[in-house]
Amino acid sequence: MIENEKDVCAEPVFQRVFTQYGEQLRNFLIYRGSEAGQAEDIVQESFIKLWENCAKVIPSKAKSYLYTLASNAFKNDIAHMKVRMKYAESGVAEKTNIETPEFKMEEDEFKERLQNAIAELVPTQREVFLMNRIDKKKYAEIAEELGISVKAVEKRMGKALKILRSKIKELK
């Protein structure tokens, strides 16, 4: 088990850290406003820094170390994009109308409004929201990775939900 290793210097341990966290770290950078290619570069850079400091990092701390490295690298980096996520869904599902006590609209329109509203969230809300909705992370995991409290995650989730709801409802 990875947890029993004393550091991340052994190749198999290093590779396992990459397999476990590489993609989610890339996703996190995208949620924060990075373009996909740039996000991969930052992931690469962060793992090389982790390797250079491998003797100082125990495996259970590798994850938060990587998130710290990546978010610092991105802070110092230049352009933040407006992130518009796409739906994984494809294929044959029939289109239905969405009816709530608050509005009625076609499914496609609702989905589009949701995409736009997510793109307009501030990065700190968007990253928390999408880490939960897309990567299906528990609040405790998100809190650990971002170095914030679970309470703060709850707050950001709640704020994000409220803003999304009001953006979807408006101008109907």
């Binding site: 996909a36 796409k86 299906k136």
Partner: peptide, 8 residues
């Protein structure tokens, strides 16, 4: 619907 979003 947000849980059906995906990453590249």
């Amino acid at each position: 619907f947000s849980s059906k979003l995906s990453t590249p």
